[in-house]
Amino acid sequence: MPSPQGTSRCGRSGELSAPRLRDGTPERAGLDPGELGRLVREVRALTTGERPWAAGAVVLAGRGPCVAVAEAAGWAVRYAAYDPESDTGVELPPAARVPMTVETPFDLASVTKLFTAVAAVQQIERGTLGIDAEVGAYLPDFRAAARHRVTVRQLLTHTSGLRPELPLYDYDDDTGRLNRLRAEVPVGVPGTYCYSDLNPLLLQHVLERITGRGLDVLIRDGITRPLGMTATHFGPCPGAAATEDQRRPWAKMERGLLRGVVHDENAFALGGVAGHAGLFSTARDLAVFCRTLLAGGSYGPARILGPDFVELLLTPPGLGFAMDQEWFMGELAGRGAAGHTGFTGTMLVLDRATDTFLILLANTVHPRRRPPNNAPRAAAATRVSRAVQAR
């Protein structure tokens, strides 16, 4: 079982503030070193060969305030382009490649949704946003959502009935994109789950309307700055791991090899700041984010949410967070584990039952996107689960 808040093998007891993360060992974190050793070897193997699962990867896992393992493998930049005739990446000369490090930033893709969700729950805690309020109360000009009485809770739980996405990147100006979003009506049955990027996009507009501030400012001032997450921000991010040689027909835009600019086409069309994608971060920064939620909303002297609102955020079905999803959480699923994946190859999972967290960041879309293979994510989470059980 996890140590009580404020005590740990890696921290001092009796602290008034929540303990900060510290590098430790598997043993000091209460995790089995054999299982974590296998985790690292398996992640390294994912980055080798002619057609690796990812060009490079970073894995970080811990328990309580202890970071038990933090390792990098492979390349942040391995390819110059993608060759569709041979269906292979055009390899850079070894001297021109960029090695992956634990400090390499990644395009988080849909992991961004978690930060949008926390920003929303912060407004719920302050009383400026009602979780069961109708979107039309805040955005009367979004007539379709207002007419169909879409609620904030439905946006946060993907039960609004909105379709998965819209081709906003096909519009030439912000007015056209905004008018398309305003006119979008639910196509599914309200209350039925359907994962949709449009939910956090509408939520972004709600948050910006009620606060008068951009989502990037809300996340910076409400989450990343107080937590000291200096590597987490919306792009551009020049030192990030490369993603895709983005070209039609496999992509939706002609942009060439991407590095340090958002991969998601809609987020790019929206200027790089979007409720569903656009953030860049590192494994260590995401570990701080996980630790904060596991500690009830506090990290060091900073508090970004009260414990009751962390409970609201992480009570099934979860607000923004996916809960107990075996397809990427492996054997961590089933006890109230929460997390999310990102299309570019990112993932985080936190398990309140065992006070553990796992971050796996990889550039699986470098040099081009492939059908998703989530088995490595589930396998990594299972290793962490077994590392707890073994102790």
Rank of each mutant, 00 (worst) to 15 (best):
G6D: 11
S13W: 11
G14W: 09
A18V: 09
A18Y: 01
R22Y: 01
R22V: 15
G24C: 02
T25G: 07
P26W: 03
R28L: 14
R28C: 00
D32W: 04
R38D: 13
L39C: 12
V43H: 09
R44C: 12
L46M: 14
T48G: 12
R51Y: 13
P52E: 08
W53D: 07
W53R: 06
V58M: 12
L60R: 05
L60N: 02
P65V: 00
C66G: 11
V67E: 14
A68Y: 11
A68H: 12
A70L: 10
A73W: 12
P84C: 10
T88D: 13
G89H: 09
R97L: 08
T101F: 03
E103R: 13
E103A: 15
T104D: 06
A109Y: 08
V111S: 00
T112I: 09
T116G: 05
A117D: 07
Q122N: 04
L129R: 06
I131N: 04
I131Y: 07
A133W: 11
G136V: 02
A137H: 14
P140V: 04
A144L: 06
A145K: 11
A145R: 10
T151W: 07
R153N: 06
T157G: 12
S160W: 03
G161L: 10
E165K: 06
L168Y: 06
Y171R: 15
L178G: 04
E184A: 15
P190G: 10
Y195H: 14
Y195D: 03
Y195S: 10
S196E: 05
D197G: 15
L198G: 01
N199H: 05
P200Q: 01
P200Y: 10
L202M: 01
V206E: 04
L207I: 10
E208I: 01
R213S: 14
V217Y: 04
V217F: 00
R220E: 15
D221I: 03
I223Q: 12
R225N: 08
P226N: 09
G228S: 05
T232F: 02
P238E: 09
G239I: 04
R247S: 11
P249Y: 11
A251L: 08
A251C: 13
E265L: 02
A269P: 07
A269F: 08
V273I: 15
G275F: 05
A283F: 11
D285K: 09
L286N: 05
A287P: 09
A287W: 07
V288D: 03
V288L: 04
F289T: 04
F289M: 09
C290Q: 07
T292S: 06
L293V: 05
A295I: 01
G300E: 09
P301K: 06
I304N: 03
L305Q: 01
L305E: 10
P307H: 02
D308R: 14
L314Y: 00
L319V: 03
A322T: 05
E326K: 13
W327R: 15
M329Y: 00
E331T: 00
G336F: 01
A338W: 02
L348H: 12
L350H: 04
D355P: 03
D355C: 02
D355F: 04
D355E: 14
L358Q: 10
I359N: 07
L360T: 10
R369A: 14
R369N: 11
R370Y: 06
P371M: 03
P372L: 11
N373E: 13
A381S: 13
T382N: 08
R383M: 00
R386H: 13
V388L: 03
Q389P: 00
R391M: 13
R391N: 13
